[in-house]
Simulated scan of single mutants.
Amino acid sequence: MKTTTEWSSFKLIDLFQVKGTKTTPKKKIDFDEYGRYPYITTSAINNGVYGYSESYTENGGVLTVDSAVRGVVFYQSTNFLASDHVEKLIPKFEITSLRAQFFITILNKNIRKYGYSYDHKRSQTKLKQEEIELPVTSSGLVNFKYIDNYMSSMQETVQKKIKRLTNLSSNEKTINTEKWNRFKLYESLFTVVTGNKFDFSKMTFKNPHVNFVGRSGLNNGVGGLVDEIKNVKPFPAGSLTVALGGSIGSSFIQTEDFYTSQNVAVLVPKIELSDLTKQFIATMIRRESDLYYSAFVNELNKHINTDFTVLLPVTSEGKIDFEYMEAYMAKINRLMYQNQRYFQKVVKGREVNIVENLTL
């Protein structure tokens, strides 16, 4: 699609009303797994959602802004509740999901431009002073037609590429696991440790540099950065984490030192394992969890260090076939890299990379 070369700066307050939300303390909420209304917090992942309930205080169709830590912006299409330090931007124009994603992308890029952080919060005062650059018509108005067409085109492109990605293995034979064996994680591969059981809302953020891993299946499980606690050494990078509740079985390699919330197990390798091998095992942990475990009914807590097993390939001698796992994951990673290139939009001039924030 041909890009527009006409962009201009606009005051945020010319496009949105900047307001606060009513704070609802977490302890006053009756959370319901099947609730209709999200509880929005200052989390930088999962659209800011902590959980769901059957009550709300705020109307949807607005952008929410974290004014406590990094200033991350999300779009809330439905009515919602909010924690402290959640501001809202009420559009003065007709908002759609695609338009919202366009504005979210630009506003989140502004985080770096304006240097928002724990010590330089994205408060209502700062938001009212903020400017954003948008495509304009020949008369200098926001070019919503361009935004709509651009986003529709990007959505169509991404949907096609996602379909291509999901069909990566369509021409390959299904892996035969009949000759694989089951292994307990703690027997020879890992030391299985209970996580810290910390509450993210009670952590401090004066000099945040330690990853905080929760039970989310997104963003490697990392909910944000927190201060290091005196006399509490973070878990080492290279360990695997496993969500025992929430997104049960979500397993990730942690690339930085970290703390954890409750219901997170930490797998510390007993032997030297490559990242490719860890990726393979993490995938098998999630597969096993999807098949046999579920939230509230049969969670992993009682099983991870007792009878939980995963299927792994073996050599003719019946030993774990590490070479096979590495080769297989290397092949998958190559295929993933090739398809990721379809998701990348080169930034030229003032064209904005929208793909990373598209909601499909």
Rank of each mutant, 00 (worst) to 15 (best):
171 N>W: 01
151 M>E: 05
263 N>I: 00
105 T>E: 10
114 Y>E: 07
210 V>P: 08
101 Q>G: 02
322 F>W: 08
170 S>F: 01
174 T>G: 02
319 K>Y: 03
332 I>A: 12
104 I>Q: 15
301 N>A: 02
8 S>R: 15
52 Y>Q: 03
214 G>S: 13
270 K>V: 10
138 S>Y: 12
323 E>A: 09
62 V>K: 10
300 L>M: 04
43 S>Y: 15
207 N>Q: 10
262 Q>V: 00
309 T>M: 11
327 A>S: 11
94 E>F: 07
300 L>W: 05
103 F>M: 05
137 T>G: 06
302 K>Q: 13
13 I>L: 11
332 I>H: 03
347 V>G: 04
64 T>I: 01
18 V>L: 07
225 L>M: 10
207 N>H: 11
76 Q>G: 10
210 V>G: 07
15 L>E: 05
343 F>L: 14
128 K>C: 01
282 A>P: 13
228 E>R: 01
194 T>D: 10
14 D>E: 15
1 M>N: 03
274 S>V: 00
253 I>K: 06
73 V>K: 08
62 V>I: 02
86 V>L: 06
204 T>H: 12
66 D>M: 00
234 P>Q: 05
169 S>Q: 04
239 S>M: 03
67 S>A: 09
34 Y>E: 04
310 V>W: 11
224 G>W: 10
255 T>H: 13
353 N>M: 14
152 S>M: 04
138 S>M: 08
248 I>K: 11
66 D>P: 11
85 H>G: 00
90 I>V: 13
262 Q>S: 12
81 L>Q: 14
259 Y>A: 03
323 E>F: 04
212 F>Y: 15
351 E>M: 08
310 V>G: 03
147 I>D: 15
321 D>A: 04
76 Q>E: 13
240 L>I: 06
12 L>P: 00
264 V>A: 08
303 H>M: 04
195 G>V: 04
253 I>D: 11
131 E>Q: 11
241 T>E: 02
21 T>D: 12
204 T>M: 09
233 K>C: 02
138 S>N: 14
231 N>L: 02
50 Y>Q: 09
87 E>G: 13
6 E>M: 09
194 T>C: 01
274 S>Q: 07
136 V>N: 11
314 V>R: 10
86 V>N: 07
17 Q>F: 00
12 L>T: 01
122 R>F: 03
259 Y>H: 08
23 T>G: 01
125 T>E: 15
60 G>W: 11
293 Y>I: 11
162 I>D: 03
130 E>A: 00
190 F>K: 06
306 T>C: 01
185 L>K: 02
82 A>L: 09
263 N>V: 00
204 T>E: 14
353 N>K: 14
55 S>Q: 09
157 T>M: 10
168 L>G: 03
129 Q>I: 02
194 T>F: 03
50 Y>M: 07
300 L>G: 05
72 V>D: 07
142 V>D: 11
31 F>E: 13
193 V>K: 14
171 N>S: 08
5 T>W: 12
14 D>M: 04
287 R>D: 11
258 F>T: 02
282 A>Y: 05
94 E>C: 05
33 E>A: 07
319 K>N: 14
135 P>N: 09
8 S>F: 08
239 S>I: 04
266 V>R: 15
214 G>Q: 03
57 T>F: 01
323 E>C: 04
255 T>F: 15
86 V>R: 08
71 G>N: 04
224 G>C: 06
330 A>T: 09
253 I>Y: 12
